[in-house]
Design a protein around this nucleic acid. Structure first.
Lengths: 253, 253
DNA sequence: CAGCGGTGTTGCATTACTTGCAACCTTCAT
DNA sequence: ATGAAGGTTGCAAGTAATGCAACACCGCTG
């Protein structure tokens, strides 16, 4: 919409990959060096970009501060956190919290497994949207046409033999998830990792977030993990209750 | 420098205070509603701004993802290296950089002494965790229970008569180090070698690495080495500043 | 030490891009 | 229904961003 701003903002993800010098930025933006310089200067003045001693540019501290504030505005996270910790304490596995935003599903919180073998993931990173249990829950709650629109635009990478193969299968899966009110990912992302997930709903019943418990086969089998489903759902419901202002902060486990 | 970008970026801190609607944003920017709308749209397309269900705008989760990615791609070693070299040039002794990882402390960079008598060490090799000055700093920053857990699991080899003898003494030393913000190893690893070390901190204040200056007795006495402490700390602080993207390197070069 | 290539920086003319306006649309409350 | 409040769009006017070319500033190398 606004070309100048658009270009300037395109610099940010570029620098997130690592420091870059003026020439590199100009090339990747497809603009003249002097233009890139002026954009970088503006970003610099706002503290979003920092110039290190070798003159290369990086993302700056202000961005971190803003990100922090953005997080705090996501108050689901604040409410959910203690519940996630408690769940982790009682089962020991990795617990994730995720939200849907703008065609992406992002992990916004995580409590690490207490087992030595852990799955890799990172807060803030978009999740594998076509297979992750939390993604299924979040997408399943969207209005039908929107769901379809997104499903058709997605790529369906074959992470494993059990990954969702195409839009049709995905929509079918979403329908199932929608009806049953919970979701799984059994080796769809990484062959040896399973997840069970449940939705967190706001006062109006809409899904505002989803949480999951994940564990590798070597720790527990898929069947064993599934026995945790009731506990996961109860935790999610407790968070929903608190989030929608129903239950006071009491909450014994 | 660039008015349009400048205005657009000014929206971010404004939204950090809390969600706002189009009118409010336009007012605080001092521009027409339609202008504000277009700026917001551009920010929106880049995911920096999110439109919640009541149509008001707030900071988007992508900000968080960006910051997170930038953190991961940040390389302490790369940033620190020129500082270490400069320190070496001014004092001539061996300079080390170390990080903590998985119950170990590893040297990840080293600038060799310019004196003929050098201490032995190797990049990538675990350091003597119970006595090295850098190890003390890195461990001292861990949460109390974790620190205790590690201290109790360690062996305490008697490299010299001044080596840390046991977990109790180690924890006490860590407490001291934590308070004073620097550490030493005076002949605790090898009888004739002394070190002074200082911590490097990230944007959140946590210790991400530690650096030290080491020299054998035959070159400088322990007392003489200690006179370098302010210089070491200043260097570490400079690296911290740059690592967390804080220092405003205003003006031209 | 001079000359050279690479990189960052500045002044300026051109024109593409942003801007504010006013009319239009949507939603909600009366 | 009717009106008000906020959001959205098309358009003409002119500001403000752009690319160019020349300059400044290293660190190299012969």
């Amino acid at each position: 919409m606004s070309q100048t701003v658009d270009r300037a903002l395109s610099i940010l993800p570029l620098l997130a990959e690592g420091p870059a010098d003026l020439g590199q930025v100009a090339d990747r933006l497809g603009v003249h060096k002097s233009t890139a310089l002026r954009l970088l200067r503006t970003l610099h003045e706002h503290g979003l970009v920092y110039r290190q001693s070798d003159q290369r540019y990086r993302l700056g501290a202000r961005l971190f501060a803003l990100a922090q504030e953005a997080m705090e505005n996501l108050d689901v996270r604040e409410i959910a956190h203690p519940h996630l910790v408690r769940l982790n304490e009682s089962c020991g596995h990795t617990v994730h919290l995720a939200v849907y935003e703008e065609n992406e599903v992002l992990y916004i919180d995580k409590v690490e497994s207490r087992y030595p073998v852990r799955m890799y993931s990172r807060i803030g990173k978009p999740v594998a949207i076509t297979v992750a249990a939390v993604a299924k829950l979040l997408l399943a709650d969207l209005p039908e046409h929107e769901r379809r629109g997104i499903a058709e635009k997605l790529d369906y990478p074959a992470y494993t033999s059990r990954s969702t193969p195409n839009a049709g299968a995905f929509l079918l899966e979403l329908e199932k998830v929608r009806e049953q009110g919970w979701a799984t990912d059994l080796g769809g992302h990484e062959e040896s990792i399973n997840c069970v997930a449940a939705p967190i709903r706001g006062a109006d019943g809409r899904v505002v977030a989803a949480m999951s418990v994940s564990a590798p086969n070597v720790v527990v089998t898929a069947d064993e993990l599934l026995t945790l489903l009731p506990l996961v759902r109860r935790t999610a419901d407790a968070i929903s209750g608190e989030y929608s202002g129903r239950t006071p902060v009491k909450g014994t486990v």
